[in-house]
Nucleic acid binder design. Structure first.
Lengths: 113, 113
DNA sequence: CCGATACATCGATGCCTGTCAATAGGAGTT
DNA sequence: AACTCCTATTGACAGGCATCGATGTATCGG
């Protein structure tokens, strides 16, 4: 099965109203918190910056710079995918990761108008 | 002692280079992760939105909307203060909270150029 | 088909965090 | 001083999370 996409399935609405605009509903807060939780780990931030600063990055090029085991890297990529922050595409044996700039912009828009 | 400030003391540098620019160092990642960790809880996000959308908010006006006990609210305000996202000022018996827009903008700038 | 490679999943472990009851601290009021 | 109100801290508990070794799954080359 080549070229299959690995991307987030669930709703990617992410109410884009800035925090300073009006109070978040309980439901919105849970959604937004999920994204920031994905960004709340140093290893994931560095992983994301590696992916976002390059065009496409293979998982095998992540273990080294991150200094983490393969299962740990796989865990973190999964969290970032579920948050909609990165997408992965399997080509042959490798999975190539790339960032989702729109999602990063959404999260940023919530913090600052 | 009236009018005393309650604000974060530690370094508020928060390397403002966007994730898509260059890879974060290990140290930078830890700093940035701390801020996002403060934003990774639904209760704290709603607390922050309540504070940021109003001009100043008293703690006594937070317990109700948040539906949490007083110690829990106090815990969350503390986390937000340590992340530099809000500041508190004691006036008489009440503490008045307000957001720190610059800090929110810093965090947003890391996510999107 | 068989071995090697790349990634995902599982199970276990240790640490961190959200929550609240109880208690302490601090500031105004009488 | 004594009392009351608001907030911070402590202690304890439950749940969540990061990490890694072991194992499973899929793909390519010989």
């Amino acid at each position: 099965m080549s070229g299959r996409r690995l991307e987030v399935v669930d709703d990617d609405a992410l109410s884009c109203t800035p925090l300073s605009r009006e109070a978040l509903s309980e439901h919105e807060a849970v959604d937004v918190a999920r994204v920031f939780a994905a960004l709340s780990d140093p290893v994931r931030l560095r992983l994301l910056s590696l992916v976002a600063s390059g065009d496409e990055v293979c998982s095998c090029d992540l273990e080294g710079p991150l200094g983490k085991s393969q299962p740990t890297v796989s865990h973190h990529t999964r969290v970032l995918v579920e948050a909609g922050l990165i997408q992965g595409e399997r080509r042959g044996r490798w999975v190539w990761w790339r960032a989702v700039p729109e999602r990063l912009a959404q999260a940023a828009a919530i913090l600052a108008p």
